[in-house]
């Protein structure tokens, strides 16, 4: 059974007084331990889909089923319980955290809010989470603004996995990282996926990264799905105009490899 099934999702905004469809008739599903990438140019609806799946905004039409339940029909305590199972990591971890918080505080929040660990048990759980994402437990006392960008994104991942989610929405989660750090973060995400069978909704503008981490890809154009399929196939032989344009625009590193 799929973790997430999105059917005929639609979200309209008004721009300059005129209605426009940010997301229009979008359907897809993600299976356990699978990475579905969502690609497309700016304004194609990538981040709107992320917000809809996280229920940060409500759709105008369509259905979102998460672990077999109609997510849009949930409210109150049942919604809160489901929310623990859907986590998120954004592009800029500095903007995603209270900048004055310590690393420990950032990781304590989900453990407390979702009643995952008792107060006495939480320091041990925080240390284990840090270790799980490749950070020294001693980092717990540091302020969020004191640590490096790569460390901060590891903390964001630690916070996301604290509630043992079955789906993580990654919205341009590695786009702001240096390439040397980016590779390590992608390896960490894949390792977590293998171990915990987490599904990823991986939103990115970068087809190279998508090819490296995604099983399947959905390419959006003006809120609609232009094409979808196996990530390697779509990138090797895009069928839609926007898919072809994205592939053509991706910088190539032409090397005479030994």
């Amino acid at each position: 059974m799929s973790v997430l099934t999105v059917s005929s999702l639609a979200k309209r905004y008004r721009r300059g007084g005129k209605p426009f469809a940010a997301v229009d008739d979008v359907s897809f599903e993600i299976n356990p331990a699978e990475t579905l990438a969502v690609a497309g140019p700016s304004g194609s609806g990538k981040s709107t889909i992320a917000k809809l799946v996280l229920r940060l905004i409500e759709p105008d039409a369509g259905r979102i089923d998460f672990e077999g339940q109609d997510l849009l029909a949930l409210s109150g305590a049942t919604l809160r319980a489901k929310r623990a199972k859907v986590q998120m990591v954004f592009q800029d971890p500095l903007a995603a955290f209270n900048p004055r918080a310590t690393v420990a505080r950032v990781l304590d929040d989900p453990l407390r809010t979702h009643n995952i660990a008792s107060r006495a048990d939480r320091p041990r759980r925080i240390a284990a989470l840090l270790e799980r994402v490749g950070l020294d437990a001693g980092l717990a006392a540091r302020a969020i603004h004191e640590i490096s960008g790569g460390q901060r994104q590891r903390v964001a991942i630690a916070r996301a996995i604290a509630t043992r989610p079955s789906l993580i929405v990654l919205d341009e989660a590695v786009s702001a990282l240096d390439v040397s750090v980016r590779g390590q973060i992608l390896e960490l995400l894949l390792d977590l996926q293998r171990q915990e069978r987490i599904a990823y909704l991986f939103i990115s503008h970068d087809l190279g990264v998508i090819r490296a981490v995604a099983h399947r890809v959905v390419i959006l154009d003006a809120g609609r799905i232009a094409e979808s399929g196996d990530a390697r196939d779509v990138i090797a032989k895009p069928q839609s105009a926007i898919g072809k344009a994205l592939v053509a625009a991706t910088p190539r590193l032409i090397r005479n490899r030994p």
Binding site: Q193, G208, R211, A212, H215, R255
Partner: peptide, 15 residues
């Protein structure tokens, strides 16, 4: 190292 870290359209899937 910078060249090797580049993920292009010929990037090998990490998984």
């Amino acid at each position: 190292a910078l060249l090797d870290a580049h993920l292009g359209l010929d990037a090998e899937p990490l998984f």
